[in-house]
Amino acid sequence: MKTEQNNEMSRRGFLKRTALAGAAICIAPTWGKVTAAEKVITGESAISHTTIPSGMAAVRTQRTLGSGKAAFTVSAMGYGCMGLNHNRSQYPSKEKEIALVREAVERGVTLFDTAESYGYHVNEKLVGEALKGYTDRVFVSSKFGHKFVNGVQVKTEEDSTPANIRRVCENSLRNLGVETLGMFYQHRIDPNTPIEVVAETCSELIKEGKILHWGMCEVNTDTIRRAHKICPITAIQSEYHFMHRTVEENGVLALCEELDIGFVPYSPLNRGFLGGMINEYTQFDTSNDNRQTLPRFQPKAIRANYRIVEVLNAFGRTRGITPAQVALAWLMNKKPFIVPIPGTTKLSHLEENLRATEIIFMPQEMKELEDTVAAIPIIGSRYDALQESKIQK
């Protein structure tokens, strides 16, 4: 089993890694400390052939998603690529976005997240172009499961049949210009295809060397247990942040800990809201921003929910950190197997996000944050009725 894992890592060109760092003493907030579950990135590492310059905003630690044969060691923070072109209003030129993605690589990010549905192949091709020449240093995760007909998504149906999983996999490999996907997630559950069939198909793709690991998005504990028995799951990807803590309440996060499955929170800043840059007057691009349709992003809801941003701002002000850094650091301090994937189109925000990997909160600080935020009622649902219906309860 260990030999197989080593073969997987070498196939991606990964160099030797440093030993586990000792357990860090919690100092609030402490910069540059490392938990016992993380590895320090230095010198001859998976990230770069040279040490990342001191003082540069970067991710210098790694975390492991999954265990045993399913173990997957990546940078402690990944990069969510959806917003480079899809559902996040205006964006820079392709040249600037490619430069930003490559900057993330140079700053230690090794996990990049995309999907077939982010502009139907558009995002995958953009990410593939950006990472050309870097694929021996990084992993790319993509997703299958949405149903498309002639390039148009059928929003009322999902398709995780073995034939579609394989079709999407081949398309993703071609779009990204890689021989193997680091992770392959089921984007949403397909009620017409048993999860055991999905797991078996992914197991075959792993044996064929087309994917290294697999995972699922927005599923419940029963589905996770059933799938994990067929093919060990490396990570679950679900929305998780201060304004959506369902995975704590429905047992998913606890089950991930029990089964040694990693957890990858998407939208860790609540689609940018927790960064404090959105208010009731924000105008979303009507042609390329799904936030305009979400109940939680209507003006009245934004105005009411902004109290949560103020809590993060007040907490961070005396510690020299921003609301976004508070939100990201809180997630990373929750569990050592959590790897958030914030996205951005701005270098300043990339730097801000990466510095959050160096912050450690004391237990009493975590409790203070959680109790204060929990006392504020959250206005508006995170999704509309159709999207919410695709989330397993």
Rank of each mutant, 00 (worst) to 15 (best):
G13Y: 02
L15Q: 12
L20D: 11
A28L: 10
T30H: 12
G32D: 13
T42N: 14
T50F: 10
P53I: 08
M56A: 13
M56H: 07
R63T: 14
R63I: 01
M77V: 04
G83W: 00
G83A: 06
S89A: 08
G108H: 00
V122C: 05
V138E: 05
F144C: 11
E157V: 06
T161H: 13
C169H: 05
R174D: 11
L205G: 02
T221L: 04
I224M: 09
A227H: 07
P232K: 06
E239M: 09
Y240L: 09
V252W: 00
E257C: 09
D260Q: 15
I261D: 03
P265R: 15
P265C: 06
Y266V: 05
R271S: 11
T282P: 02
F284R: 08
N290C: 10
R291H: 04
P295L: 02
F297L: 10
A301I: 00
N305F: 08
N313W: 03
G316D: 10
I321N: 04
I321P: 08
T322S: 15
V326W: 05
K334W: 10
P336Q: 08
I338W: 04
H349W: 10
L354G: 10
R355A: 08
E358M: 06
I360N: 04
M362R: 12
E365N: 12
M366S: 03
E368L: 15
L369Y: 02
D371V: 12
A375V: 08
L386C: 05
L386M: 13
Q392W: 01
K393L: 04
